[in-house]
Simulated assay, not measured.
Amino acid sequence: MRSVCLLAVVALVSAEVYFKEEFNDNTWEQRWVQSNHKDDFGAFKLSAGKYFDVESRDQGIQTSQDAKFYSRAAKFDKTFSNKGKSVVIQYTVKHEQGIDCGGGYVKVMRSDADLVGFHGETPYNIMFGPDICGPTRRVHVILSYKGKNHLIKKEITCKSDELTHLYTLILNSDNTYEVQIDGESAQTGSLEEDWDLLPAKKIKDPDAKKPEDWDEREYVDDAEDSKPEDWDKPEHIPDPDAKQPEDWDDEMDGEWEPPMIDNPEYKGEWKPKQIKNPEYKGKWIHPEIDNPEYTPDDELYLYEDFGAIGFDLWQVKSGTIFDNIIVTDSLEEAQAHAAETFDKLKVAEKEKKEAADEAARKLAEEEAKKKEAEKPEETEEAEEDEDKEHDEL
């Protein structure tokens, strides 16, 4: 037990925190550079939102203008490479406005990224976080590899309520990853399988062709089956029970014809019976060969230079709050940070929102009852006014 505890302590001591931002006061503006790529970027403001526990601890930066792009970024205290170790990117997002369309992700970049000119085309290493627009509600994990950006192939559904949620990406040196939401695993896998970073290992043999006599029909018509002689009956026939109306005039109404009805003897289109095809060989499968363009890469996870992080977003309805950002090489360090920030906020926030929702529900009920109670009085007053107008007339 002592050995386990000692190892845990050593792991925490050796952990590196490359970036941490809690937006505890107004000094955040000195660290986060406002891009000048456009002259009408939306403004972030410091806010803890409507529901919080300790305001200074729970406040973050909030988008404050509708239908705007936002672009702000900060340099790391320490530039690093994740060679031979994990990297953990973690932060909280709160869509307090009930977002309908907008991003909530971060971009983690190289140390030489141009933050003054930061915009949508600025190169990045990793883009991670929730994105919501209409029915689309997913967590983006986009990895840059050899100059191209690759979106994860798996669907990861993000949270879309009005509470704070914790998003964590763990990128491991064995080319595996994990995405956590609120500390719970939302997706895991390997970088090679879940992204199209490398060409396929196998490809269809370009020289292979399906033989001309290859029969893929499992069933065929029975050549010995023949259509019965009495099969072909019309689908509709004149109604034998119909009679010409007594007042029918051929000169005025034309020649009378009985109405048509469904033929009870109609059997539909005849088709021969199906039998097993004696020549059936199964579905032809195109043979595969090793892809000559495929080369394994044990360092898909590797980025030689991490040094900046930024928000590059579009939001139709503003109000999202970002907070508690940490970039580290230790999941334990990230979890400890969450315990001191997110875990304390989420309990108080949920309780206060539920209390506010209940109070709003009761108020709405009281107002509805009040309106209902006022209806008879309004009717009586209206009737009295009508009687008075009638007397005057």
Rank of each mutant, 00 (worst) to 15 (best):
residue 119 H to L: 08
residue 121 E to P: 00
residue 124 Y to K: 02
residue 125 N to L: 13
residue 126 I to L: 12
residue 126 I to C: 02
residue 128 F to N: 01
residue 131 D to W: 03
residue 133 C to E: 10
residue 137 R to G: 07
residue 138 R to L: 13
residue 139 V to D: 03
residue 140 H to I: 03
residue 142 I to T: 14
residue 148 K to F: 02
residue 149 N to T: 15
residue 149 N to R: 06
residue 150 H to D: 05
residue 150 H to W: 00
residue 153 K to C: 07
residue 154 K to Q: 15
residue 156 I to E: 04
residue 156 I to H: 08
residue 157 T to K: 09
residue 159 K to I: 01
residue 160 S to L: 00
residue 161 D to V: 01
residue 161 D to Q: 00
residue 161 D to N: 02
residue 163 L to T: 10
residue 167 Y to C: 00
residue 173 S to L: 08
residue 174 D to H: 12
residue 174 D to I: 09
residue 175 N to Y: 15
residue 175 N to K: 13
residue 177 Y to A: 02
residue 179 V to Q: 02
residue 179 V to T: 10
residue 183 G to F: 04
residue 185 S to M: 05
residue 185 S to C: 06
residue 187 Q to D: 02
residue 189 G to P: 14
residue 192 E to N: 13
residue 192 E to M: 13
residue 193 E to R: 12
residue 196 D to H: 08
residue 197 L to K: 06
residue 198 L to P: 02
residue 198 L to G: 05
residue 208 A to Y: 07
residue 208 A to S: 11
residue 211 P to E: 12
residue 211 P to H: 07
residue 212 E to N: 00
residue 214 W to N: 04
residue 215 D to K: 11
residue 221 D to W: 09
residue 222 D to M: 06
residue 223 A to D: 13
residue 223 A to R: 12
residue 223 A to Q: 14
residue 227 K to D: 13
residue 228 P to Y: 00
residue 229 E to S: 14
residue 231 W to C: 14
residue 233 K to W: 11
residue 233 K to H: 12
residue 235 E to V: 00
residue 237 I to G: 03
residue 238 P to A: 01
residue 238 P to Q: 10
residue 238 P to G: 07
residue 239 D to I: 00
residue 241 D to S: 09
residue 245 P to R: 09
residue 247 D to P: 08
residue 247 D to G: 08
residue 248 W to H: 10
residue 249 D to N: 14
residue 250 D to A: 07
residue 254 G to S: 00
residue 254 G to L: 11
residue 255 E to S: 12
residue 258 P to Q: 08
residue 258 P to F: 03
residue 259 P to F: 03
